[in-house]
Design a protein around this nucleic acid. Structure first.
Lengths: 244, 244
DNA sequence: TTATATTTGTCCGTATGTATA
DNA sequence: CTATACATACGGACAAATATA
């Protein structure tokens, strides 16, 4: 078992404990399948109560790092931490590089989704997309906030693939960039035409999907995401050459 | 606040409590921003102790559904549950349809990753991929288990994109299909040539990436994943026509 | 198979720091 | 500023499941 470093008063005791144990697991100090020290042992070694240890282990269970059996103990899972996918560490803001990496993943999925949507969309799917588009148009007219409708539109495209996993992934990715849509839809965004540009790009995606043209939908989604990256001040030079 | 249904003895009390509250949040009974009942109130209403309620809330915090402030209370987060992305519900086996949906998402990302890898791979990247390939070849020769090397190869491709997010996503997706690789590498898989087929497909992907040919890498990855789907008994008829 | 010790799951009571009216 | 409400943390205790002799 790894050595225990004394805890320097954190905001949450259980957070520190779970982070420490998570570190043990990630750096290989505790291999998959091995049994964690007992709650009593951990509580004495960390110098905290058993309730704190239990909350820490509760978090690790939720994250898919360990599982516990009553009477037996807690054990490191076979492939720890791979039950769920999370982009950024909890709370801390992502750097520009990380944001660009996340955006590229979003780019891959959403362009593919647009192409699939062009093939599989139903009339109901188109109606949902059109509604989001109309709402964005209204927000555009009154120079209001269209971030929610923007988000809805992208999710509607993913939903039109008929694949709920793609939809859930788009919803997940959209959440990561929710704040980033603000500069498009705030007053400055309206004044400088960013909101109008985004709306035009959305319209092009919709038209291609409605027309059932996967290639055009892919290209329109590609263009929109490249422009959106530009609006966020991201460099996409390498994309222009590299991503077909 | 929603009504409370009495709990029928589950294996884990805290699990039931957190699932119930999660349901409240997902179905809109508790909107984002609203304050949860106090721990004391929840404990009396559910008929459990505060410790159980605290563990339940601890899990909801870990999942990104709620956040709590000492002295104030626990509140539903703005976009609950979107901190992390998880494919299947915890534990229960996925249906065939769900598996196909997940596989399509994997298909999208991994084919794109192969194309990107062909453009951006370094010599080190190629070395890692080659090592996994060699290991698989050795397993093939002794009719052993190559699932781990198989997983490593796919992750190495994702790593060669230079985008850690894509790598992490590939690792995450690989975990979902880890068990599904068994029929390729068990005795029957060796006997019926499935392992050899997979190896040949892997080699084609590697050659294309090593040659720096994105189109060929994309096509090779596409072929491998379609064949892998067939080995799993999945139908990909619609893919053959729909996914270019 | 039985008995016993270990470990997690659950409950209670209490004290403390924080937020809010 | 005071008082109340609340989450956080502590300690002890028992029950239930498990492992072991």
């Amino acid at each position: 078992m790894p050595t225990i470093s004394p805890l320097s008063r954190p905001s949450q005791l259980s957070e520190s404990v779970s982070n420490t144990i998570e570190q043990w697991i990630c750096d290989g100090s505790m291999a998959p399948g091995v049994k964690l020290p007992t709650e009593k042992a951990l509580s004495t070694q960390f110098g905290v109560s058993r309730a704190v240890v239990r909350e820490a282990i509760s978090r690790l269970k939720a994250e898919g790092y360990v599982h516990s059996r009553q009477g037996a103990g807690a054990f490191v899972m076979a492939r720890p931490g791979l039950e769920s996918f999370r982009l950024a560490g909890r709370g801390e803001a992502a750097s520009d590089d990380v944001t660009a990496d996340i955006f590229e993943l979003r780019y891959i999925v959403e362009t593919a989704a647009a192409a699939l949507a062009a093939r599989r969309r139903t009339r109901d799917d188109l109606a949902v997309m059109r509604e989001a588009l109309v709402t964005m148009g209204a927000r555009l007219a009154c120079r209001g906030d269209g971030t929610q409708a923007d988000d809805d539109f992208h999710i509607a495209i993913a939903a039109a693939t008929g694949n709920p996993m793609i939809q859930r992934f788009a919803r997940f990715m959209g959440n990561q960039f929710y704040a980033s849509r603000v500069p498009t839809w705030n007053e400055e965004g309206h004044a400088e035409g960013r909101a109008q540009d985004a709306q035009d790009e959305h319209q092009a995606i919709f038209d291609a999907i409605a027309a059932g043209d996967p290639m055009a939908a892919h290209a329109a989604a590609r263009n929109h995401l490249v422009q959106a990256a530009h609006r966020l001040g991201m460099k996409t030079d390498h994309w222009d050459k590299e991503i077909r």
